[in-house]
Nucleic acid binder design. Structure first.
Lengths: 217, 217
DNA sequence: CCATCTTTGTGCACGCGTTCACAAAGACAT
DNA sequence: ATGTCTTTGTGAACGCGTGCACAAAGATGG
């Protein structure tokens, strides 16, 4: 029986082994003292807790470049997601195959949701259409929405929304890039993690008090 | 002079006003006691600290659906990013316009990076090509990489990498969805934030000890 | 010029998550 | 069976971030 110790896993993941053990204990993944964790059992338990063993039908609304990219994305299937339908408002798109699947028209949205028992919807429409699409998804029974449109969606209680802003990650990189350029000496640890600008305030109200210490010249 | 108080901003953002004031103090954004913060000055300071006032030329490598979607994404320009070039390995793509810009061939990658002074690269290639592209970007002088390919990239010290996994957000939604379905009674607070599975361990090593309390039946 | 009022900036305390450290548990050898 | 060795599971301590509460600062009015 192949096993791993919390120490090995922690080293591989770069975290503290005690924390890892405590986290596992929350999931009830009992290991064997003196041996470690049964790999296969552990994988199964974590997969199950994360919902990876379940089949999640999703619909993608808005089949532009992004929608098509999502439809083709291989990572979904392996995580338990199944693209049940592609929906677009453009009549010219209807029937056209994308990722080996015909695009359906927005008119049939409610029927598609209901027929496939979809509870998760992905919105990849332009900003202007997002709220309207969202409302229809919710009305049709969708209770979780992943929003790629640059709009903040309003939803009733009980519906989860997560917004993906493709430029935020880029901004974080630019932020670090700026700091690299600003202070050539004080080297960044470069672990890629977002970190607070300064650890301790360094306020001076003196002559040049309007240029805070943390700012690049 | 239009101003805002920390109290107003905190209410709008849904956070504690003291925390907001403390955060601002780290940036050196001095407000005026009895009045609040000068809106214009505040916006400028935060923009500057975040690097929004700077011009960041970026290249996008891999102009498939996702690359094209990124090239067309409007959110970049408004955040200080400028798409300096689109690069693809397919000779058939070369010269073809995407988002009003001709796609260039991978052969010219190094020259493009250097000519435009690019320090941030976006990888939207298939998984197989990502590491190779990454190596060339780094060798050409790129020090920050945004990776959309489903691979973990290896880079030398001093280079920042951020990986965007489009299915992670979906997985978080599915996780909550699963919990909604599992325990109809114990209602989720529905704030959309990721939260720990349980707040306190509830271990029992009894007869049915292999079914942890947090697991759905 | 003084009093009053508003809002900032921050010391301090609280609470939560992480880490330490160890007892308990099981494997394995003798 | 008994002892030793390894690794888990977890109580307790530590550290850090958040929130409270208040003194300081400046505006505003009499």
């Amino acid at each position: 029986m192949p096993t791993v110790s919390s120490e090995e896993l922690a080293a591989a993941a770069g975290v503290n082994s005690a924390k890892l053990r405590k986290d596992f204990s929350y999931l009830g993944s009992y290991g064997t003292r003196g041996v470690g964790y049964d790999v296969e059992y552990l994988v199964y338990q974590i997969s199950r807790e994360l919902g990876l063993t379940q089949d999640w039908p999703v619909v993608i609304v808005g089949i532009g470049n992004l929608g098509a990219a999502l439809a083709n994305y291989g990572g979904f299937a392996s995580r338990g997601f199944r693209v049940a339908a592609l929906i677009d408002a453009d009549p010219a798109m209807a029937g056209k195959p994308v990722a080996g699947m015909p695009v359906q028209h927005t008119d049939d949205l409610e029927k598609i949701i209901s027929d496939n028992g979809v509870s998760i919807g992905v919105i990849a429409t332009p900003a202007g259409a997002a709220q309207q699409v969202c409302d229809r998804l919710v009305a049709a029974g969708v209770t979780s929405i992943l929003n790629f449109a640059p709009t903040v969606l309003t939803v009733p209680d009980g519906v989860d929304v997560r917004k993906v802003d493709l430029s935020i990650e880029l901004q974080i990189l630019a932020f670090h890039e700026q700091r690299k350029a600003g202070e050539e000496s004080a080297a960044d640890d470069g672990d890629g993690a977002a970190e607070p600008a300064v650890t301790k305030a360094q306020h001076r109200k003196g002559p040049d008090g309007d240029v805070p210490a943390v700012m690049p010249a």
